[in-house]
Design a binder for these strands. Structure first.
Lengths: 183, 183
DNA sequence: ACCAAATGAGACGTTGATGTCTCATTCCAA
DNA sequence: TTGGAATGAGACATCAACGTCTCATTTGGT
C-alpha cells in the first residue's frame, strides 16, 4: 500500500473524469489509501486539482512530442495528435470543465504553452495551404479541445464506440460533416 | 420587484453560465430578489437547475422549430439551427457540464427529444447525400453540442469574437478545418 | 531484528452553503 | 382605503465536506 504519487493521481483522474464532484474521501478510497495520507500529499482539494492539471499538461506535452507536430502536413500531424491524445482525453475533459470554474484566478501557464503549440500547427497548415484561413487558429484549438472532450464523454456514455474515437474526432475536425465531392 | 419566474430563470442562466458554482445567494442577488423568495419558488438548488433545464429544453425546441430542420438541404438547415441556437448557447454550455454531474440519475427526457431531432437531421442529410456516412448521427449530434458549447465559452473568454460565432461553429462542423480544393 | 518513517482509521472542530422560519414592510386588487 | 398576499431581510439550525490532529500499526531500509 505504499503511496505512489503518480498512481494516486491517475486513479483520481479516472474517478474525477467520471464524477467531477467526487469527494476527497472517495478519491482516497478509489486510490486505496487513507484520507489522511491523501491529505499529507495534497494540501487540499485545490492542490489535488492543481496536481491533476500538472499531470495533464505533462501528459499532453509528451503526447505532442510523440505526435511530431512539425513533421509532415498539418492534417497528418493533427491526426497523430488526436491519436496520441486519446489515452488522456477523459482527463482533458475533466480539466476543461474544471478550468471553467477558475474564472479569472490564475490559470496554469502550461495551458498557454500547449495552446501555442496547437495554434502553431494550425497556422502552419494555413500557410502551407492545407488548412482554411477563415477559421482562426485560436478557434480551431478550442474546437479541438471541445471535440476531444465531447468524444471522451460520448465514449464513456456509450454513445460512441471507443475504437472510433480517433476517426470521429480527427475526421470531423479535418473534413467536417459535409460530404465532399472529391471523396 | 414583482417576482417574474421566467425573468429570474433567465438571470440565473446568465449568471450560472459564467460561474457554474454561484451560490443561491448570488443567484438571488443577481435576480434582484431575496434569497427567501428565490426559495419559495424553487425548492432548492436542484429544483433551480431542473427548472433551468426545462427552460433550456423549451428554448431549444423553439429554436429548432424556427430553424425549420425539415426544409431545404441538411447543411442549410444546420446553419439555421446554429444561428437560432446562438442566443442560448451559454445556457447550453452550462447545462451540458451540469448534466455530466447527473451521472446516471434521471436525465430529463426532453434531451432525448432534442437529440432525436438533431440526429434525424443528420440522418436525412446522409440519405440525401449531403452528409458523410462514416460519422454517426449520434456523434455528429454530440459534436454539435460540443462545438456550440466550446464556442460559447470561447466568446465569453474573448478568444472568439461574438459576431463570428455562427460562422465558426457552422463552417467547422460542416466543412471541417481542411481547405477543400473545390472552394 | 530494529528503528525511523509512513500509513490507516477515526475523532474533532471549522467552514460554507443550504433550507426553514419569523416578522416587518410592500404591493395589489377589491 | 383596506386587507390579504407576496416580498425582503435576517436569524437560526442542519449538513456535508474539509482540514487537522492523535495514535496504533505497518512498512521498509539497515
Amino acid at each position: 500500500m505504499a503511496m505512489d504519487r503518480d498512481q494516486v493521481l491517475r486513479t483520481a483522474a479516472a474517478l474525477l473524469s467520471r464524477k467531477a464532484t467526487a469527494t476527497m474521501d472517495e478519491v482516497a478510497k478509489a486510490a486505496g489509501i487513507g484520507r489522511a495520507t491523501l491529505h499529507r500529499h495534497f494540501a487540499g482539494r485545490d492542490a489535488l486539482v492543481r496536481a491533476l492539471e500538472d499531470l495533464g499538461i505533462r501528459e499532453f506535452e509528451v503526447a505532442f512530442d510523440k505526435a511530431r507536430l512539425d513533421e509532415g502536413t498539418a492534417p497528418d500531424a493533427l491526426r497523430r495528435l488526436v491519436a496520441e491524445s486519446e489515452p488522456n482525453a477523459p482527463l482533458l475533459a475533466f480539466l476543461v470543465t474544471e478550468n471553467q470554474l477558475f474564472e479569472g484566478d490564475q490559470v496554469n501557464e502550461g495551458w498557454a504553452r500547449l495552446d501555442a503549440r496547437v495554434s502553431a500547427l494550425f497556422r502552419r497548415g494555413q500557410q502551407e495551404g492545407d488548412i482554411r484561413i477563415d477559421l482562426s487558429p485560436a478557434w480551431l484549438t478550442e474546437a479541438l479541445y471541445g471535440l476531444v472532450g465531447s468524444c471522451a464523454w460520448a465514449v464513456m456514455d456509450g454513445r460512441v464506440a471507443a475504437k472510433d474515437f480517433q476517426h470521429m474526432v480527427a475526421e470531423l475536425l479535418l473534413g467536417g460533416a459535409r460530404r465532399s465531392v472529391e471523396k
